[in-house]
Design a protein around this nucleic acid. Structure first.
Length: 737
DNA sequence: AGCACGCCGACT
DNA sequence: GTCGGCGTGCTC
């Protein structure tokens, strides 16, 4: 016994004092974990390290702050490895910290978003190359001759490059190497993209475009943090304006990030960039090959890539020296991430810029109401581009009152629209019909017994798809072959399709114009390749009438399109979403903006049952200011009840079903009359839109019973820390700005 | 998040 | 008698 205690004492006194640092690991712990730093290893806050976590090795970031004294020293494990790459700098760490606090997410998850490149943390390996030694083997064949001719300049070649360039097989080069004609050299890996040249092809701007760009450049010249919103109609040249801001930032030696909704990150955009800057930007999006992703990450962190065009996750790349963020299509809901860490990349871009002290430019033809409010309040600087440039006129938009001009029985197109299509195609121009509904008909029922086809998994309606001869659930993906008998009463051939989808509209169009070429554009017909081919074909004039879903709204230009018909402008206006009107306005503006870029006169016809609706009025008048005023007022009125009752509860859940389970539990637990809004953190700014310091609560809890108890207690006592559930209260993000 | 442990229902 | 469902707990 005595010996034992002596042993313990000895260990206590003699154990070398290991340096301990906090490390953020990719798991939902509320604080960093502590790890020991082995002798001879140096780390600083921001160092990217590999550490053991349970049975596996994970990537983490050495974090700021003192080590956690409470952790049992026996549990401490050593850092396995420090990666040879630039540590995340102070600004980046502050940003990650802020995002974690604001989105109420575990900091380890947020950090992981910055480390989404499995093997990028060690330097790229050198490329093996060959260089001519000056020695010519005695046996020279014609193939060898060609190789040596090329290599005679003494520059380094890769084996495959040299073989390819001289038109021989790599084994010829191998042979020459064996003979001693080449020595092995190591070359630094080539950059993914050449550095962009800010003065490669300067656009000559004029009129409102020039004024807008001077305005933006003046803001940039002041230096430091700022937010500008470029508000300009489709075709007004917004891109050229922000390209000037990019050029100026590049001249100052800083990196630039262009955030785009994933779908807008097209070859077309990259080419426009290349035309202006002489090389393509680095790309960052979800279907990048792993290898490319790693190289982009690496070269962004070392500063080799100067401009990145990327989807929302590009915001978390570790730029070496970022100096400008552009958020194009800033109103687009694709900037919201709604799993794990909930954030809106547009807002987090503003925060990243604020922390690092550089400008942000938001860009949209139809700004979000939030950004409009921020402009009105003077927080954001508004740059207005009111007109299209050159000969591109805005299309003339008109409403078709469906009560006065009803379609033929069984049809969905009013005679007014049918006539307009006829005139357009007779002139040899194209017409686009927009309907945001895939398939043939959104609902099928039995005429005999009234049975409605419903999804067995999730109870939404099954949508008939005639092209595929299937009925599908658009919610969960369930599908089965289209039946011809009613499963309820067994009656044959008495199933009736209710309402239109794009396929049904195409059928109606073909009936009216049997000798014209009608094409359906819908996301469920083939992959990206086929879609690209079809878009190309349309641009070449190989279709007369195109019937399309939402995907026609984005990016692609159809030069011959002079008529856009909105089959049902009212869709989506009454679905309970507080942003329904805003979304409809944005979507329809985008779709109608597809027409009229040709210099020819172009038209848009919007079929509606509500011609007086503010959205319709805003669209046809071309003046959205009254609409925005009204929307802002509506948000005010819809604002959640005052603090003291529940304001909003942001539920952290694994998936949507689970979140809805929590919502049900909350409604059960709360006394009747209590308003409960369940919002994701990405939605929270909606409730906070006027910048009032309302409180927001988060319940981190996974069990409905806990939630019920929590809600009861909170309604009695007011929000405060409880031991079984973490409650965080934080304030309006605007107070940060 | 992953992963292990542990306790009850249907089957090689 | 085992295989495997997911509820619970743990990782510095």
């Amino acid at each position: 016994m005595k010996d034992d205690s002596r042993l313990v004492m000895t260990e206590l006194f003699d154990a070398p004092k290991r340096r301990v640092v906090p490390v953020l690991v990719p798991m939902p712990a509320p604080t960093p974990y502590s790890y020991a730093v082995p002798d001879g290893v140096t780390v600083t806050p921001g160092s990217i390290v590999q550490v053991p976590l349970g049975p596996r090795q994970v990537v983490g970031v050495v974090w700021d702050g003192p080590e956690d004294q409470t952790v049992n020293p026996k549990k401490l494990r050593d850092i396995t490895k420090v990666f040879d790459c630039p540590p995340l700098d102070q600004n980046m760490r502050s940003f990650l910290h802020w995002v974690a606090a604001y989105t109420l997410s575990p900091p380890g998850y947020v950090a992981r978003m910055a480390l989404r490149a499995p093997a990028a943390f060690d330097p790229e390996p050198m490329i093996e190359g060959l260089r001519f030694t000056g020695y010519k083997p005695e046996r020279i064949t014609p193939a060898r001759e060609r190789v040596l001719e090329l290599a005679a300049d003494g520059l380094s070649w890769t084996k495959s490059g040299l073989a390819h360039a001289s038109g021989v097989s790599p084994s010829v080069v191998d042979g020459l190497t064996k003979q001693g004609a080449f020595e092995q050299v190591f070359l630094p890996p080539p950059p993914l993209v050449a550095p962009p040249d800010p003065d490669y092809m300067v656009h000559r701007l004029a009129g409102p475009q020039l004024e807008a760009s001077q305005d933006i450049l003046a803001t940039l010249a002041k230096g430091g943090f700022s937010v500008s919103l470029i508000d300009g109609v489709t075709g007004s040249g917004k891109t050229e304006v922000y390209f000037e801001a990019i050029a100026e930032t590049l001249r100052r030696g800083k990196q630039v990030l262009i955030l785009l909704p994933e779908i807008a990150l097209t070859a077309n955009f990259l080419e426009r960039f290349q035309d202006r800057f002489g090389s393509k930007p680095g790309e960052w999006h979800s279907d990048l090959a792993t290898r490319t992703r790693e190289r982009v990450w690496r070269q962004v962190s070392t500063g080799d890539i100067r401009v990145v065009a990327g989807a929302r996750s590009a915001l978390f790349l570790p730029f070496e020296d970022l100096g400008l963020i552009i958020v194009d299509e800033e109103h687009d809901p694709a900037f919201k991430q709604e799993d794990r860490v909930f954030y809106n990349a547009r807002d987090m871009a503003v925060v990243r810029a604020r922390i690092s002290g550089f400008p942000v430019i938001l860009v949209s033809a139809t700004p979000s109401v939030e950004s409009q409010v921020n402009c009105n309040a003077g927080r954001y600087h508004l740059v207005h581009l009111p007109t299209r440039f050159a000969d591109a006129a805005m299309p003339d938009l008109h409403l078709v009152d469906m009560r006065r001009h009803p379609p033929e029985r069984g049809g969905f197109l009013s005679p007014v629209l049918v006539r307009a299509i006829g005139k357009t195609v007779e002139r040899g121009e194209q017409a686009l019909l927009f309907l945001n509904r895939r398939g043939y008909a959104p609902l099928t029922l039995c005429r005999v017994c009234g049975h409605r086809f419903q999804c067995p998994q999730c109870s939404s309606w099954l949508v008939e798809h005639r092209f595929r001869n299937q009925i599908q659930c658009h919610q969960c993906g369930y599908n089965e072959p289209t039946p011809n008998a009613c499963p309820e009463c067994g009656t044959l051939d008495h199933l009736v399709a209710c309402g239109p989808g794009v396929e049904r509209i195409a059928e109606e169009v073909e009936k009216h114009f049997p000798d014209k070429r009608t094409l359906v554009l819908s996301s469920d017909l083939g992959g990206v390749k086929r879609l690209r081919l079809e878009l190309e074909a349309i641009a070449q004039g190989e279709a007369d009438i195109v019937v399309g879903t939402q995907l026609v709204a984005k990016g692609h230009n159809f030069p011959l399109m002079t008529l856009v018909g909105i089959v049902d402008a009212d869709i989506g206006l009454s679905n309970g979403d507080p942003r329904a009107a805003e979304r409809t306005f944005q979507l329809l503006s985008q779709v109608t903006g597809r027409a009229g870029r040709t210099g020819r006169k172009s038209h848009g016809l919007l079929q509606t049952f509500q011609p007086q609706h503010p959205v319709m009025q805003a669209l046809v008048s071309g003046d959205a200011s009254a609409f925005y005023e009204r929307e802002i007022g509506e948000r005010e009125r819809a604002a959640l009840p005052p603090y003291g009752r529940l304001v909003s509860i942001i539920v952290s859940a694994d998936n949507r079903a689970e979140a809805e389970g929590h919502a049900r539990a909350l409604r059960l637990a709360a006394p009747s009359g209590t308003d409960i809004a369940i919002l994701g953190p990405a939605e929270a700014p909606l409730a906070l839109i006027r910048g009032r310091h309302r409180f927001r609560l988060l319940v981190h809890g996974r069990r409905s019973s806990d939630m019920q108890g929590f809600v009861r207690a909170m309604l009695q006592n007011g929000p405060k820390e409880r031991k079984s559930i973490q409650v965080q209260v934080d304030v309006d993000p605007q107070s940060f700005l």
